[in-house]
Design a protein around this nucleic acid. Structure first.
Length: 517
DNA sequence: TTAGGGTTAG
């Protein structure tokens, strides 16, 4: 209910654009006597042409000159909000207030636009509240709710909402099915996905490009590449780029790199296709392929694409070509948190910890991007690789206190790893104790602590960690035994090492299966 | 005038 409680204080709507050009545009605005329907149409045209600033200025003009506002006014201006940085979400709350006062929320279409605005601006709860308070909902309102759940990573809620929708006897559409299929793909819900696939035949949606693309994504995500290919070849209509890209991605995920490259070569690829095959180069460490594709992407002028550049940074870093990674990073137009994390990780994993930390500072100073939990894994492991223990402790605290990020098992593993390797076993043990208390113990944390015990020749603590590892119920039992055996061997306890190996053999576990750590 | 598919970091 944050929206309603804060809205009235935010009105009247203020103009966030105080630029001479903005004033010029305002001077050019239609006369106040112009008919509202014509202005609504003009507003929609601005949004359609991706001219959100003009849309906002026109809306402000209408509001100030008491031109009647209705659902037709709110739909386009609400859809412009997500593209208006910072000002967008503030404006969204103000628009909500205004719609409430004018009684526009009783209509499903403007209320659905409002739901969508909150969802796209990142206000999940406000979006769901709008849905809950809608007096009348149509199938589009339901579809908007489902895509809101998906956007915010709640796949299971999407699937549940679909079943509520069916129970409410709302007649679903192809839009609904494609959204729920996407939810099944991202949550790997194969059984429900198969039911929905059957439903596409029953409802006659089986030849829809969008639904077939969702199905390819579903089968690829569930490791069923043959079924994904069957959906692709079985479709009775011409394929489009998105559908081909879905299959290319599926082939890459199934490590069928040659098939992915072949399908890529058959098409006129767009930036997404380039990103997919470059990911294949990154995974298969094929720098030669990667460089060729990078050159083609350069010729096609796709290299300002942020996601594509992020993949290139990763490829060059993986191959140890830090200079190419850096120059690709520098030329990335709109660097996002993944761009920064990738380059920090690139330097960190090459043992250039100070450069990685300098980049982190540069990111903070630049200010447009906030670090997230993954960024800090890269920062902490950079510190670990370069033995920058005090800096590592400092950034661990920066993460918690400055950015409010709750440390996860991976952050603790980095911290314990660097303390242990640096011989600071007492501090590592204290952190480890905290992790056990918090119930965040993972095999990664145990491995880091066990390595620390090995470095410090600490038999007693090592055996406690070994016991914890057994209790974790790790699937890779052989891996646990190998680590324990190596621990005993590492501190010169050959008898202990031998005993562990014997237990392992008695249990019929083979060393080749080992893979933890 | 509101809703759907394909791409990136640990």
């Amino acid at each position: 209910m944050r929206a309603f409680s804060t809205l009235s204080r935010r009105s009247p709507i203020t103009n966030p654009f105080k630029h001479p050009l903005a004033q010029h545009l305002l001077d050019e605005m239609p006369h106040r006597d112009a008919h509202a329907p014509r202005l609504n149409a003009l507003l929609s045209a601005h949004v359609r042409n991706n001219n959100q600033t003009s849309a906002l200025l026109l809306f402000l003009h209408m509001h100030r000159h008491n031109i009647p506002l209705d659902g037709f006014t709110f739909n386009p201006i609400l859809s412009a909000c997500p593209a208006l940085p910072a000002a967008g979400s503030r404006l969204g709350f103000q628009l909500h207030s205004l719609m409430f006062k004018l009684g526009c929320l009783s209509e499903p279409i403007p209320a659905t636009s409002l739901l969508n605005m909150y969802s796209k601006c990142g206000f999940f709860e406000d979006a769901v509240n709008v849905f809950d308070e809608m007096p009348e909902r149509d199938v589009v309102s339901w579809n908007a709710l489902l895509s809101c759940f998906i956007h915010h990573g709640h796949s299971q809620l999407t699937i549940n909402a679909f079943f509520s929708m069916v129970q409410t006897r709302i007649e679903f559409t192809g839009f609904t099915l494609s959204t729920v299929l996407t939810a099944c793909a991202s949550s790997r819900s194969l059984a429900q996905g198969l039911q929905l696939h059957a439903l596409t035949f029953i409802c006659g949606y089986h030849n829809s490009l969008v639904i077939a693309t969702s199905l390819i994504d579903l089968y690829s995500s569930c490791g069923m590449i043959t079924q994904a290919m069957q959906v692709f070849t079985g479709l009775n209509s011409p394929k489009d780029t998105a559908m081909r890209n879905a299959l290319i991605t599926g082939l890459v995920q199934s490590q069928k790199y040659d098939d992915a490259f072949a399908l890529f070569a058959q098409t006129t690829p767009n930036a997404v296709a380039f990103t997919s095959v470059l990911t294949a180069c990154s995974d298969s460490l094929s720098l030669k392929h990667g460089k060729q594709i990078h050159c083609t992407a350069l010729r096609r002028d796709f290299t300002s694409d942020t996601i594509l550049c992020n993949v290139l940074v990763r490829i060059y870093a993986k191959c140890g070509d830090i200079h190419s990674a850096h120059s690709t990073f520098v030329m990335t137009d709109n660097k996002d948190v993944i761009s920064w994390t990738s380059i920090i990780d690139a330097y960190g994993s090459q043992g250039c910890g100070l450069e990685a930390l300098n980049l982190f500072t540069e990111m903070e100073n630049e200010g447009s991007v906030l670090p997230n939990a993954v960024t800090f894994i890269s920062v902490l492991s950079a510190c670990g690789h370069s033995g920058l223990i005090n800096e590592g402790i400092k950034y661990f605290n920066v993460m918690k206190n400055k950015y409010g990020i709750d440390p996860g098992a991976e952050h603790y593993a980095c911290l314990i790893d660097m303390l242990g390797k640096g011989g600071r076993i007492e501090e590592a043990w204290e952190v480890y104790g905290g992790v056990v208390k918090e119930g965040k113990l993972s095999s990664g944390v145990c491995v880091a602590m066990l390595n620390g015990c090995k470095v410090c020749m600490d038999l007693g603590r090592g055996e406690i960690v070994g016991k914890h590892m057994m209790e974790l119920g790790e699937e890779d039992k052989a891996g646990v035994y190998v680590l324990l055996s190596n621990f005993y061997a590492g501190i010169g306890r050959w008898k202990g090492a031998e005993e562990v190996r014997k237990v392992m053999e008695d249990k019929g576990l083979r060393k080749e299966e080992a893979g933890i750590g």
